[in-house]
Amino acid sequence: MPTPIKGRGASTYLPGRFETQTSEAVDDGWAVDESEEFAEARLRTDVRPETARSIISRNNSPDVGFSQSINPYRGCEHGCSYCFARPTHAYLNLSPGLDFETKIFAKTNAAEVLRRELSKPGYVPQPIALGINTDAYQPIERKLGITRQLIEVMQETKHPFSLITKNALVERDMDLLAPLAEQQLVSVHFSVTSLDPHLSAKLEPRASAPHARLRAMRRLSDAGIPVGVMVAPVIPWINDAELESVLEASREAGASSAGYVLLRLPYEVAPLFRDWLDAHYPQRAEHVMSTINQLRGGKDYDSQFGKRMRGEGVYADLLANRFKLASKRLGFNASRQQWPWLDCSKFIAPLPPKKPSLQGELF
């Protein structure tokens, strides 16, 4: 039975799918010396600087509301047990489990690279989604400020962008976001999984508590910044009963748009989430996974566009109808994706970086 680790979402160093060798701990039967000398090392977060060669990622997925995105970090200390981005750490020969939330890569030159990419002659502005794979406001952002540097470039070039976060740290940047909102250049969405702080602490151990996200939502809304809520992910028999209450609380906190996403379990996320269920809800685990399999055509996950975010079947239809009715009652626009209109016409391309002179600089 997996043992929960305080402050972490995963409980194991699950090997990535590209590994050729794996190791496994075996109890040899000898007594364990529980003295401090033999105590298990504390899991600390290791932040590693990374020099990015490019910063804007592009997609043509028909079921997401953006075509461009930026991720200032790889890996995420929030430790969400269900994070669909965990498998990306396998490309680094690291574990999608504990490594994903303890070994963080910070793109320290992100703002410089963004300015360079926006200055290219053929660049056509489209809204950029900031912080999609991993949260742009995860704890290390408080110290490094990479996300703030990116927002400063957006402000300088009047480039439209949206944010989605689980961290109240976004309040720090209200001085930048409020003027941009006046020009229809930014919107902010908060991902709220549950209003129960105990459940939230299990699901996303290092994200802001639910009440802190709602407070940040209210403060941004009061400052004139358009805010929305994503109930994501909806997990059968874990937080699905809270769909309406999360929407109601978010509406009361100033949210003007809403959406939801069904739990996604690609690649290594499925066994990691099964471990999480066994550790926290062992009596419910089989029922949860049985329902997920029914939603995914008998599998843990179905990656087809149009199905991966919503699932299919009776439960999926019921969830969609509940969301539609609650959104209508609360005054939300009930369309599937909610990204408020952002103005691309104000974009001012930055000057391209100077090329070094072969003769050097005389003055």
Score class of each variant (00 low, 15 high):
Gly331Arg: 09
Lys324Tyr: 06
Phe273Arg: 02
Lys158Ser: 12
Met154Asp: 03
Pro96Arg: 09
Ala25Val: 06
Ala253Ser: 14
Gly313Tyr: 05
Glu268Ser: 08
Ser191Glu: 10
Pro340Asn: 11
Val231Ala: 14
Leu220Phe: 11
Met1Arg: 03
Val153His: 12
Glu242Thr: 02
Ala178Glu: 15
Ala25Glu: 07
Thr20Ala: 08
Arg284Glu: 03
Leu362Lys: 06
Leu43Ile: 10
Ser67Lys: 03
Pro197Thr: 05
Pro236Lys: 10
Thr88Asp: 08
Glu156Met: 12
Phe363Gly: 01
Asp278Tyr: 04
Asp317Phe: 00
Val229His: 00
Gly16Asn: 02
Ala106Met: 10
Glu244Leu: 01
Glu286Asp: 15
Pro62Leu: 08
Gln304Asp: 07
Asp46Leu: 14
Asp99Cys: 08
Leu144His: 06
Arg8Tyr: 05
Leu295Ser: 02
Gly79Trp: 13
Leu199Met: 15
Lys202Met: 15
Asn133Cys: 15
Lys324Asp: 04
Val192Pro: 02
Gly29Phe: 05
Met217Gly: 09
Leu325Arg: 13
Pro233Met: 04
Thr102Trp: 05
His159Glu: 00
Pro125Phe: 01
Ala41Leu: 12
Arg17Leu: 09
Gly75Asn: 09
Ser221Cys: 05
Lys328Glu: 13
Glu50Lys: 03
Thr12Trp: 07
Pro139Glu: 05
Glu248Ser: 10
Lys328Ser: 07
Pro49His: 04
Ser221His: 11
